[in-house]
Amino acid sequence: MKNYFKRLIFGPIDLIKGLIVTFRNLITPAITLQYPTQKQAMTQRYRGLIDLYPVKCIMCSQCVKICPTNCLALTHKEGPDKKKELESFKYKMELCCFCGLCAQVCPTAALYMNKIYEIATSNRKELEINLLNPDKYAEWAHPTVR
């Protein structure tokens, strides 16, 4: 019985405490971003799509070996001056898990991850990317970096 009255009196006080918390938040400005018009700047280390500097690549295939999902494939041929030359470098984006192991393992930093994150597409073929094509990401939105 005593407990009943105690709760009857102190209960509302604790309810009001909660109301005060929500009211304080009601009058503080909203913190969300209006996404398509406002975009968050990407961080320096952000791991977006895999990108390649073909000149730097020494065809060591370390990235292909380390990839846990086998999303990279490269072939090379013998060039005119008997040097190894990149023939193809395929990147299957749909398999990629953006773990960044390939970029970390690359000895010459030829492979890196750019900041592109809006990667939805309605065509599955677009997800298989030829990394040797310099304009491969021209149609994708390029975000700003913090």
Binding site: T43, Y46, F98, G100
Partner: peptide, 24 residues
């Protein structure tokens, strides 16, 4: 975490023998 390791949910930050990057 985004600043530290470059991703927001699946961090993949630890490495066997250390961490991927030093703190920025």
């Amino acid at each position: 975490f985004d600043e530290v390791c470059g991703n927001r949910l699946t961090y993949n930050y630890m490495r066997i023998g250390g961490v991927q990057f030093d703190l920025p």
